[in-house]
Simulated scan of single mutants.
Amino acid sequence: MRAFMVNAGRTEFSQNLFTSFVPRRLIFGLVKQTAFVGNDAVNPFNFEPHGLREFEISAGGKRFPYEKYKMDFANGNAVQPYVDMYHALGQHFNTSNCGVTYKQFKNGWTIFVVDLTASQDETSGFELVQNGSTDIRLEFSEAVPAGGLELVVMAEFDELMSIDNQRRIKFES
């Protein structure tokens, strides 16, 4: 997990997230900076969209999502990232799900989940570990509010474990 400060007044934000290996999945959200640092009066788990209009993730030389979302949370236009969240979690055809409704997603449960695998299919299948950097770019329809925001990012990485003929265990990221 990593967190990055997004200063007040900005309408764009770019950040290098990881430099060595490309994650399998990236999960991120925006929370008020005051809540992140421990202000008891503000909920640190209230991940609102804060006017986020577009985002782009560059990982291992590829861009995700392939087509940019054109989000407008104020007018209810956020269906594609909501559906893609379920797809990236492997819950799009399951009867069990993470329990986040579309209404919740738009109002404080706004967590973006991006599948960065080559197959774009969340399975337990084997994917080669990719070298490369991972960057994120955010565009806001309005300036970041006073006090700023915190971009909270969680990444899942694959790791390969092998045991040689002398029973030595070796881990590779």
Rank of each mutant, 00 (worst) to 15 (best):
E54C: 05
L52F: 03
T95L: 15
E150T: 15
E56F: 10
A41Q: 14
M85S: 11
G29Y: 03
A59F: 00
F112W: 13
K103A: 14
V144A: 02
I57M: 09
K62D: 11
Y69E: 01
D40C: 13
H50A: 01
F140K: 02
L52E: 00
E67N: 12
A35L: 12
R137F: 09
S96N: 15
T95P: 09
G61N: 06
E122I: 06
T123K: 05
F105E: 01
G108D: 02
L30Y: 05
K70P: 01
C98F: 11
G61L: 08
R63A: 07
L128I: 06
N107M: 02
S133K: 14
T123S: 13
G90R: 02
K62S: 12
G99L: 06
V37M: 11
G99F: 07
Q33R: 14
F126L: 07
N46S: 10
I57D: 06
F112L: 15
K70D: 12
I111F: 03
D72Q: 04
G148K: 12
Y82F: 15
Y86L: 12
A88T: 07
F55D: 04
F36C: 07
A74N: 10
D121Q: 09
I57P: 05
Q130V: 06
T34M: 07
D135P: 00
V31K: 01
Y66I: 11
D121S: 07
I27K: 09
V100N: 05
N75T: 09
M85T: 10
T101S: 15
E150R: 15
G38F: 09
A74T: 13
G51E: 08
L116K: 02
D115C: 12
R25Q: 10
K62E: 13
N43G: 06
A118W: 01
D72A: 03
C98S: 14
D115T: 12
A74I: 09
A74P: 11
A59H: 00
S141T: 08
Q104K: 09
G99C: 04
F105D: 01
Q80N: 13
P44R: 02
G132Q: 07
E67T: 13
F36A: 10
F73S: 03
L30Q: 06
Y86F: 14
F140M: 02
E54L: 09
L30R: 06
G147F: 11
D72E: 06
S141W: 04
F105T: 00
N97W: 10
P65S: 14
P145Q: 07
M85H: 08
V79C: 04
W109I: 00
I27C: 11
V42G: 06
K106C: 14
I136L: 11
A155Y: 03
D121Y: 05
Q91E: 15
P65G: 13
A143T: 13
N107I: 03
D158K: 12
V153S: 02
F140H: 02
E67M: 11
F105W: 02
K70M: 10
A118Q: 10
V79N: 09
F55W: 08
A118S: 13
S58H: 09
E48V: 05
E67R: 13
F55R: 01
D72I: 04
E122V: 11
N97M: 09
K106S: 07
L138H: 04
M85E: 07
E127H: 13
